[in-house]
Design a protein around this nucleic acid. Sequence first.
DNA 1: CACTCATGAACAATCGGTTGCGCAATTTTG
DNA 2: CAAAATTGCGCAACCGATTGTTCATGAGTG
Lengths: 340, 340
Amino acid sequence: MLHPATMKSIAQQLGVTVSTVSRALQDHPRIGLRTRERVHELAEQWGYVPNSTAINLKRKRTFNIGVVLPFLTEQFFSMAISGIEDVAIGEGYSVLLMQSRNDYERERIAISTFIKHGVDGIIVSLASETHNNDHFSTVNNHGLPIVFFDRVARNLPNSCVYADLTEVTTEAVDYLFRRGIDRIALLNGPGTLQATDERLTGYLTALASRGVPVNQAYLKNLDLSRDNTIRAMNELLELPEPPRAVLAFHDYIALDAMQVCRERGLVINQDIFFVSYSNLSFCAYLEQPPIASIEQFPYEMGRKAAEFVIATISDPAATERQINVIRPALTIRPEWRIDQ
Amino acid sequence: MLHPATMKSIAQQLGVTVSTVSRALQDHPRIGLRTRERVHELAEQWGYVPNSTAINLKRKRTFNIGVVLPFLTEQFFSMAISGIEDVAIGEGYSVLLMQSRNDYERERIAISTFIKHGVDGIIVSLASETHNNDHFSTVNNHGLPIVFFDRVARNLPNSCVYADLTEVTTEAVDYLFRRGIDRIALLNGPGTLQATDERLTGYLTALASRGVPVNQAYLKNLDLSRDNTIRAMNELLELPEPPRAVLAFHDYIALDAMQVCRERGLVINQDIFFVSYSNLSFCAYLEQPPIASIEQFPYEMGRKAAEFVIATISDPAATERQINVIRPALTIRPEWRIDQ
DNA sequence: CACTCATGAACAATCGGTTGCGCAATTTTG
DNA sequence: CAAAATTGCGCAACCGATTGTTCATGAGTG
């Protein structure tokens, strides 16, 4: 069969009209049982697959949702997309994927590609370099639903789902204090991200509640590149009073920073301690993993984000902004727990 | 603008017909300069975006390619998809993604979803549980191009790209021999995969060329689940003559196996050595990483696979099977190199 | 001055479906 | 047994584009 079977070809073969075929395949009651059966039979036999492009044109939907995120190689995001995928498939949607690689320009292109491809909705986790929201405003004006997850855009009225790290950060710093560690550095993310603010706020709150003065030299904003991390960690270690613990923006940052420490002869979990965000499975394989990590439940975030877009797609009228704040969990490795 | 601008709305506003608008936007020479300008202007002003669904219907193309692979959380695959994505974007295609999670049923569903969504081509890396190729034969009968990468289906006439691991495995085993290690186990993959055969053949060749007898107890076929790996590694270590080196199907297998060793009090890279396939970046963070690993260039594989499908899409007539065999590289960690 | 030609735009078919409406033929109802 | 209701299906418009053909207008030619 060079050209796939269409309703037209079936109709011709059976000597009926296309509309009859269409209705027969939908088991419309007004089509006679006899005809219905013949149509179904031939469709089956010819392996008829409805042309979704045509249906989409009629329905003004594509049943595609676009996802833009920084890097799939980061487990956080590949887990998030699994959540998105599971919900999407369940609702009959497919997932179009693009990686921004933290690059503003790639992010823009991704968004406009999605618009051109006519997706029904978009899920975004911001590129760290994104400093401008115009490309999203355009989409909003188009009336196309966007939902942000994890790396959420500020000053944009879209629905979003993220983990609020403020409290859990306070908790983490507090835990370090209770271990008797008070020189705590914060390898934070880029200032463009809300998550960066949260970590800082949580950190400052913990210090304030204990009356510990803030040492500005312990606060670093990273651009999440490897070089940048290494430089920052070196700077920390060269301070007259180097930190005894480091809160790292996420596990990859922690790993790079830990390696810097090791290269300088420090023993992890003895000379210096790490606490890191997003609990990657492979950290379990390290001989000296961070003593605690903050689980942000990316799979759940992905699910929620997908549920939000699909809900908005299904009912564009209910344009209310939905915000879901995931409660992150501080997980202290068993051997480092403080018994109460 | 509740409803997005269409050619029709532009045509009405300007008092011309849709065909004129269409041609004007394509800068057709038969449309007067005056009209052309007016159309362009209004289109710009109204933020006109051509409805790709309609265009696709006309062109009988969707400019989507579907990708099914086991797990995005495995770095090998997330790198491969980056290669696919880069080529696809460059050629004006978008990537539809589905993970099979090594499950046959999910893989089937993914394929049929892609057909329903009317993708122009499909790229697959087989689920380890896939024992049956009927779902692919269906697609082949449909005339829809499929390209396999890495985990290639046997007995199917499709184009594919994969790394032939036979030689490099021989090389790896040989390297271990030269280090004076002769009790070498092979934690191999499922028998359904071609890559499993290659590893075995390469292994046997190396043994044969040295006249070393094959110890069947050293050969294990895994289903790639964690439990299964752990059990197999335990069995190896309980042998009267446990292996002194292990070739692991890939890094995740190696990591689990290494942990088993550690738990039993063995010191990695002293009591027992590991060589692993697919060189994951995070292995660099391990204190005792595998002494050698086999790089399979997943990004390149992804690129090639994408180039193949797109070439076939663009010219369905040239239906010749293309096979690209990537040459994997044995990378020995600097501290373990044998100076010649 | 009738005649060909180039120009600019409208008409209409098409892609592959969906769906409201109309019209026979048949069956039910009073 | 005639009127009404039901059954079974065709007709045609529509979704938003593309593209071959036609047609009117005005300019150029012999």
